[in-house]
């Protein structure tokens, strides 16, 4: 029996240092990573990523077992991994107000 409980998160390749949400994960949810239980400090929308383990600034982010970017800050295990803490090795990412996956991206 696996000692980990990734809950709604999916490990796509054993090489990966991120997990992908296959459903919307609420703030406060506890998941058990290799480093132990961790509580989500914000909601993670479906298809967004969290760190599988702690990641140092400058580390390569691996998803599908392949590099998808470079950490621009230290990222704790269980933390949201997205445009605020990783960058492309190729071209900059364009985003709007809704990039956190939670904001509506519409205004009155």
């Amino acid at each position: 029996m696996t000692p980990f409980d990734f809950g709604p998160f999916l490990l796509l390749s054993d090489k990966d240092n991120v997990l992908v949400a296959r459903a919307n994960a609420p703030e406060g949810l506890t998941v058990t990573l290799e480093s132990g239980p961790t509580t989500l400090t914000r909601a993670i929308p479906m298809a967004h990523k969290i760190a599988r383990r702690s990641i140092a600034e400058g580390d390569t982010i691996l998803k599908y077992g392949m590099p998808i970017g470079i950490a621009t800050a230290a990222i704790a295990a269980g933390e949201h991994v997205h445009i605020h803490n990783i960058r492309s090795a190729y071209t900059a990412t364009i985003s709007l107000q809704d990039a956190d996956g939670v904001s509506a991206g519409v205004s009155l």
């Binding site: 298809a47 599908y64 998808i68 990783i86 492309s88 364009i94």
Partner: peptide, 24 residues
Amino acid sequence: LGYGSFAAGNAAGGLSTIEEKSLG
């Protein structure tokens, strides 16, 4: 051109970089 083939909605949907979008 200064941009990758990446739209703002890709980021809202959880994609962080062009290479992540590419692999998918």
